[in-house]
Nucleic acid binder design. Structure first.
Length: 319
RNA sequence: GCCGCUUUAGCUCAGUUGGUAGAGCAAAGGACUGAAAAUCCUUGUGUCCCUGGUUCAAUUCCUGGAGGCGGCA
């Protein structure tokens, strides 16, 4: 009865179960340590990190280690070659499949990561706007390069005033996407409404992990030196030898792109690269928090309160 | 010891022909409609090294001093 009700609410990728744990936290806040302590008979993890999905990006992305994934099953790790583009849409699709599978095993999925964009759209779903199309995007981009960004921005004003007003004139990324949608569908992006309720009747437990800034910096510093010990430089070398360049989607990750910057400019010492990585990570963490703070229903909790977090998750399981 | 250059925001440095100053980066805050570890927006921050002098007015010109860099000895 309950099951059919929920199914009638869903459009696609029906998800007959409501319980999903969302564990959000920036890199180095201490998620992995927590996950390793979850009961494998009750939970499985779905990775919500846009870089850890890539094969071969292990050290720089601070990917969960083999001994943790052996303790508790992780979905959406190592599913894509770093030269391929992962997207939110793929994330939702793959995560939905994993959620169904985990629920069938009578477990609860724990969606864990730092990509707030993925969390948001997993919770609410995407609009009906056309999917991103690399061909059209490239067409739009070459138009912008030929004419100018301000030309594209005023074109947007003509075809989609609502989006024009929402987007800044310098935001090439979003201007491109808005025009891409218009060229693809003939309709303005703003005509596609974003859903405002959770998909599939999800009743989530949303946990936001945080730590103080100076503590985060300390952890990031330590983490970088551990990465170097583990062979980060060799990992980069292997990637470059296999043809990696800064155009590869996986290479935009912090901990990778800095090495390409260093190669281009020359003259950056490893410790300067480390400082850059730490700085970029801090700024990224700030952006992650800002985004996640706009979510409703978040239970914010200091990452050091392990017992409390475990209790929350276990109570949710039993509820 | 002598000569030259230099000292301005947390950092690197502009600048004011005399009317108490501004860029980049950092920092803080924010946004987020299929690339999101991406992309973008907003906001300060000052004994202008110290000391006297000239002047209505000195961060700016002059004297003396201190620190830094370079050259000559």
């Amino acid at each position: 009865m309950v099951k059919s009700n929920i199914q009638s609410l869903t459009k696609k990728n029906s998800n007959p179960f409501k319980k999903i744990v969302f564990l959000f936290g920036p890199t180095s806040v201490g998620k992995t340590n927590l996950l390793s302590k979850l009961d494998n008979n009750k939970f499985s993890v779905i990775n919500a990190d846009s870089i850890q999905v890539y094969k071969g990006l292990d050290i720089g992305s601070a990917k969960v280690s083999k001994d943790v994934t052996e303790k508790i099953h992780h979905y959406l790790i190592d599913i894509l070659d770093p030269r391929e583009q992962f997207t939110v849409a793929k994330f939702i699709n793959e995560a939905d499949k994993a959620v169904i599978k985990i629920h069938q095993e009578n477990k609860i999925p724990v969606i864990s990561g730092g990509t707030a964009f993925y969390f948001k759209h997993f919770l609410y779903g995407l609009s009906d706007a056309p999917a991103s199309s690399i061909e059209i995007r490239e067409k739009v981009e070459s138009m912008i390069n030929e004419r100018s960004l301000s030309w594209a921005y005023s074109l947007l004003k003509e075809v989609d005033l609502v989006t024009y007003n929402r987007i800044n004139e310098n935001d090439k990324y979003r201007i491109s996407r808005a025009l891409e949608v218009y060229f693809d569908s003939g309709k303005p992006l703003s005509s596609f409404d974003l859903p405002s309720n959770y998909r599939n009747g999800i009743e989530p437990l949303i946990i936001g992990l945080f730590r103080e800034k100076d503590e985060m910096e300390r952890r990031l510093r330590l983490r970088y030196s551990i990465m170097v010990e583990k062979g980060l430089i060799q990992e980069i070398r292997d990637l470059v030898n296999s043809g990696a360049n800064d155009e590869w989607p996986g290479m935009q990750g912090i901990g990778y792109k800095e090495f390409f910057i260093a190669m281009k400019s020359g003259e950056l010492t490893n410790s300067q690269i480390g400082d850059l990585i730490i700085k970029n990570s801090k700024q990224y963490a700030k952006r992650q928090y800002t985004f996640f703070k706009s979510f409703s229903d978040v239970n914010w909790i200091h990452a050091s309160k392990e017992e409390e977090i475990k209790r929350m998750i276990n109570e949710y399981f039993c509820k």
